[in-house]
Structures are given as C-alpha cells and as structure tokens.
Design a binder for these strands. Structure first.
Ligand SMILES: [Zn+2]
Ligand SMILES: [Zn+2]
Ligand SMILES: [Zn+2]
Ligand SMILES: [Zn+2]
Lengths: 163, 163
DNA sequence: CCCGCAACTGTTATAATGTTGCAAAACTTG
DNA sequence: CAAGTTTTGCAACATTATAACAGTTGCGGG
C-alpha cells in the first residue's frame, strides 16, 4: 500500500485516488463487505484532495452528479467507510478524510495545516505507546484515541513568518 | 491549585466547584478580565460534575434559573471561559468540561469513560513530548493538540467484563 | 456630573451538522 | 423463485453553532 506522498507537496494525486480505490475494493472483498457504487463514489469524493471534506460537501457533489441524495445517504456511506477503516473522521473539523493506512492496523494521528487545510495522517508508534502508558498509569482501558494536531505544514511555514 | 481528585471516585465535589470558582476569580482578576455573573454561573454549571456538558444543557439550566438566555449567551460565555483557560471543549463529544489545571501552562489530554461519562484531564509531559517529536519529524509546526481518549475508567472496568 | 467609548448582553433569525423511522428496492442464498 | 437480509430513498426532525444588530452597562476623561 502507498508509500505516503506528502499531501502538501505537488504529486500525482490521481495515483493516490486510484491506489485508495483499489485498496478499498480489495479490503472490502476480503471482508465480504459490499462496496456499492454510492459508497465507492463517496470514497472517491473524499479522496479528491488531502483536505478533509464535510458530509454536506460530499452531499453537494453527489447532487451535482445527478444523484438524488439526502443526508442519510452520505452519513451511511461514511459510516460504512469508517467501519471498514477506509476513512477517518476529524472530530475537530467535523469532516472526513481518506485513510492512508487502510488495511494496516494503526492509530491515526493527524497533522492539520491551518493555512492550506491539508492533512497528513501519520503513524507514530512512540506516540501511541506513550499515550497507552499514560492512560495505563490511571488504570484506564483505552479503546479509541483521537489525536489531531493543528498547526502549520512545512510549505506554509515559509509564507507565514509571523505568529 | 487542586491536587486532582479522581472524577470517578466518590469525593467531596463541592470542594472541586469551590476551588474552580475561586481559581477562576483569581485568574480573571490577574488578567483584567471580567468574570460577570453569567460567565461565573456558566462555569459553575459546567463544574456541576466531571461529565462534559453540552452548550444546550447549560442553556436549559440557565433557563431553569429564570435567566432569559439564548444560544449566543451560552456560546459567548463558553468562548470567554475557554479563552481564559477555564474550560475545555471536548471535540469528540461537542461538549465542555472544567479545566482542572487552570492557570497552569498545560496541554490537555482527556480520558473519557464511555460507561459513566466522567472525564479525567491529565497532563502527560511524556506524551506531549512524543507528539512534538513526531510532528517535528515532519517539520510540522504545532499550535494546538486535541488528544481525547475514549475507553473505560477503572471503576467501570469492574462491571463491564465483556468487550 | 455627564459624555463617550468599549465591552458585554438580549434577541431574532439562520446556518451547519447529524439522526430517526419507515417503506421500497436490490442483493444473497437455498 | 421464495424468503430473508442488506441497502437505499425519502421525509421529517434533532442537535450544535453562528450572524447581525440593537440595547445596556461599566468606566475613564472632560
Ligand atoms: Zn494525493
Ligand atoms: Zn499548509
Ligand atoms: Zn469533583
Ligand atoms: Zn466510568
């Protein structure tokens, strides 16, 4: 599966999308899950960039497609995709982004650029470990970790010399 | 400032509230900020337990008080309280909770029990450090970290042997 | 004391995000 | 094909958050 192309660097993004869709098809097949046209289309829309997309943005684009969609259409597709580890929800933005580690067992950590809006999902075992440790110190049993980091990506730091 | 009483253990919670209010008054004074009656009341409501409270829950209670309040009243008070580090917003719950480290420079990390709803805010320098490190490895300039951990608190693990 | 500015509040309306419930349609399996 | 399951369409509704503007209050300088 894809060696991470950095979202905020120019790259052949069509390759990102194709890879993601191919991975998705394979994963769903393996899990006996039905990647229906609507679901696949929603995944494709989510992957149209490395910026998280709101549910209603997805809805608007489905409508442009001529698809007669209502909010539940989108939320159901997104639920499905989340369930199968194909997209993540970014709680601090109420938005969704394609998972760049689909299929792999991982805990997402997201670097969210406030200037360009791009998000990089990274896996950081050291972070996961220290989180687990800290929670363990309180005898807390972890089931889900939300780790979202807002700031400036390398590209945008050049322009925003202030702050 | 308060040595953390664990939220999910029985404790004299009135002391938590009083401490929080006293701290708030002092902090606002130092910062030349006006802790008006509405703001103080909202803070008190937020502190009524260690479970995060939604903005509209606060609103409902203000209304019970006889206060003729609308959503902006609450959101403005909450904005103020956040600005001055007196409450935190829990993004994964769309809810607010009193800060247990008001005044101290800290990065919050929240242990959210899915069973009892209580939230423990903890400071874990090791975690902050590893997050900073991981972000630094990508040349990302961190400005805000959202770290929310859902799971089971020690008390609730006893009952929920399953899962 | 009172004017004038700034901060705070009240009020109405509206935007943005997410859910429920039920019936019709599509697919799966025997 | 028939029965059962999953998925979709659709209408209504619930929850969370913001915009815009007018009124009020607190406070320092004439
Ligand atoms: Zn790409
Ligand atoms: Zn950027
Ligand atoms: Zn307490
Ligand atoms: Zn608990």
């Amino acid at each position: 599966m894809s060696a991470s192309a950095l979202p905020y660097r120019p790259h052949n993004h069509e390759a990102c999308v194709n890879q993601a869709l191919a991975d998705a098809r394979e994963i769903c097949q393996r899990q006996n899950a039905r990647l229906t046209p609507t679901r696949e289309r929603v995944l494709e829309l989510i992957w149209q960039s490395h910026k998280p997309l709101g549910a209603y943005d997805v809805l608007a684009q489905l409508t442009e497609d001529g698809h007669n969609a209502a909010p539940p259409t989108v939320y159901r597709a997104l639920d499905f995709l989340q369930q199968h580890g194909l997209v993540h929800r970014i709680a601090s933005l109420n938005a969704f982004i394609g998972c760049t580690h689909a299929g792999e067992h991982h805990t997402g950590m997201f670097l969210i650029c406030r200037a360009c809006g791009n998000v990089l999902e990274m896996t950081a075992p050291a972070v996961s470990e220290s989180v687990r440790q800290a929670a363990g110190a309180e005898n807390f049993k972890v089931s889900d970790v939300t780790l979202e980091i807002a700031g400036l990506c390398p590209s945008c730091q050049l322009e925003h010399v202030d702050e």
